[in-house]
Write a protein that binds this DNA or RNA. Structure first.
Lengths: 136, 136
DNA sequence: TGTTTATCCTATTAAATCTATAGGGTAATT
DNA sequence: AATTACCCTATAGATTTAATAGGATAAACA
């Protein structure tokens, strides 16, 4: 299940990307427009800034804005920052690999085999779509 | 993230499917072979029996066994029974649909648009693979 | 320079979900 | 009758997620 954090983060990025100009947008405006708890959104935008997706400006007329063009923001990196691993089990994760406690041999594991295919199919979608592609 | 329940359930089904005969296998044997808590596995196998994947036999020589041939058990149904919805958000789920509280219009939602693609790609994998296909 | 605006940051709590265990009941076999 | 092994409910512990609280910091503007 997609976390609210990821959902809200995506919505916020979309809202910023659909803006005609690149002027800073206040948290309050995004929160109201997307029906998100303002304080919760605040922490999400903060992490998106720290990971290099957003810039911010303090004081009057301040807010958040996209640093890069929406077409240069692939979904793979957005999902990994907000949601974490794309893989459903750590043993098939490219960026968050971890061995299973049980399971002596991954190559003999049916779950590994299946989840490898699922990961690849999800990865293909995320790699083929940027923020610009999911604008409505 | 895939739940342990799904992981263990899949492993148990695989273990039963890889058996040469269709004789009942005891919970204890599966639990030991797959490194699963026996009591936890017990509840998982119970639900797999109730949903029609397994048969069981009590008393000495008893245990669980596959009712159908592994090649007739599609991953879609296994995943839905063990894990729940295949979709990552309820608003794109075929079998567990639910409208989002926020989001006045699904057709205008970028998350919806993206997750629809992800669901379809996962669905294709699950539909094209039966229990027989993931045996190692 | 002081007030207002709005982001920045840490800590904490509330809620939900997942994982596992406890403890006994029931049915079949020998 | 004794043993074996599944059946079933309830509950506790652990982890994760979602949200809130409360103030610190920095920029704009009169």
């Amino acid at each position: 299940m997609l976390s609210k954090k990821t959902k809200y983060g995506l919505k916020a990025l979309t809202y910023l990307a659909s803006r005609p100009d690149k002027e800073p947008v206040q948290i309050a405006e995004i929160a109201e427009h997307e029906n998100i708890s303002q304080k919760f959104l605040e922490s999400i935008l903060l992490s998106l800034r720290k990971t290099g997706f957003l810039g911010s400006k303090k004081g009057k007329g301040g807010g958040y804005y996209l640093i890069k063009d929406a077409s240069e923001i692939p979904m793979t990196t957005v999902i990994r920052v907000l949601e974490g691993p794309i893989a459903m089990v750590p043993c098939v994760s490219l960026n968050f690999y971890e061995k299973c406690d049980d399971c002596p041999d991954e190559n003999e594991c049916s779950v590994h085999k299946l989840m490898l295919m699922v990961r690849d199919s999800a990865l293909e979608v995320y790699r083929n779509n940027t923020l610009a592609d999911i604008l409505t």
